[in-house]
Amino acid sequence: MQVLANIIFLSSFYVSFAVGLALVFGVMRTINFAHGEFYMLGGYALWLLSGVLSNTIPDGATFIVAMLVGAGVVGILGMLVQLTLFERLKEQPFSIFMATLGLSYVLQVVVVKTIGPMGRSVPAIFPGFIMFEGAILPIQRIVVLGFTALMMAGLWYFLMRTDLGRAVRATAQNKTGAMLQGISMGKIALTTMFVGSALAAISGTLMGSVLMIGPFMGAEALWRAFIIIIVGGIGSLSGTVVAALLFGLIDTLMTTFGAGKFAAMVDAIIMLLVLSFMPNGLLGSRE
C-alpha cells in the first residue's frame, strides 16, 4: 500500500514537471531548456511568499497565492522567451536549444547571487499524516496530489473545451492548415509558452512544499523529463502521462527493493530501447 502511494506521488510529480515541456514541444517543436529553472522559480515563489505573507493570511491561502503568482510571473517570463529567443531563432532547433541552455544558467546564477546557493525549505503547510491500510500518507503529499490533478484537469479543459485550446491543438497537428483558418501563429506561440511555463511554475510550487527548494532543483530533474517525453512520444500529452506513470512505477519499485542506484541507468536504458524499436515513442505520432 505504501509502495502504491509512493508510486502515485512520484508519478504525479513526473507528470506535472514534464507536461509543460511536452506541450511546448508538441505545439512549437521547440525545447525550452530553461523549463527546469521555471520550475525552480515556482519553488522560490512559495519560499518568498511564505516568508512575506506569514502571519497575514492562512498558510493554505499562501500556498494558493504562491501558485498563482508563480504561474503568472513565470508564464510572462515564458512569453518573453518566446518573443526574444524563439521568435528570432525560428526553425533553428539547435540554436534554440543552446540559447535556452544559456538562459537556464543565467537564471541559476541570478538565484544563487540574490538568494544564495543553499537549499531552503518551507515549514509544512498541511502537517500531519493519515494512516490508511497500513500506509503512512502525509497530508501535504495528498494536497499536492490533489492540486496536480486539478492542474491537469484545467489543462485538459483548456485544450479540449475552449476555442483557443482547440486552435492550439490544431496548430500542433498542422501549422499550415492552422494558418489558413486564420489562426495567428504568434498568438498561439505566446499562449503555449505562457501555459507551458506556468505549468512548470505550478509544479515547482507544489513540489517546493514537500522538497528542498534550491537553485539547481530544476536542472537536476530536467533530464528525467527528457526521458519521459521521449518515451511517451515527443509532443504527445497522453504519452507523457503514460510514461510518467511508467517511470514513477519503475523508479519507486527500484528504490523499494534497494536498487535505487540503478534507477537512472534503467530509465536511460528504457529510453534507448524505445528509441531503438519505436522511435516515435509509446504514443507519439509520426512526423
Binding site: 525545447i31 515527443i234 536511460a268 529510453m271 534507448l272
Partner: peptide, 24 residues
Amino acid sequence: PVLRTRHYYFFLSTFAAGEALRQA
C-alpha cells in the same frame, strides 16, 4: 538508438543518456 534520432530528439536523447551516466 541515438543516431536514429535527429534534431531535438538527438539533443534530448544524448543529453538524457549523458545525465543518466553522470547519475551512475
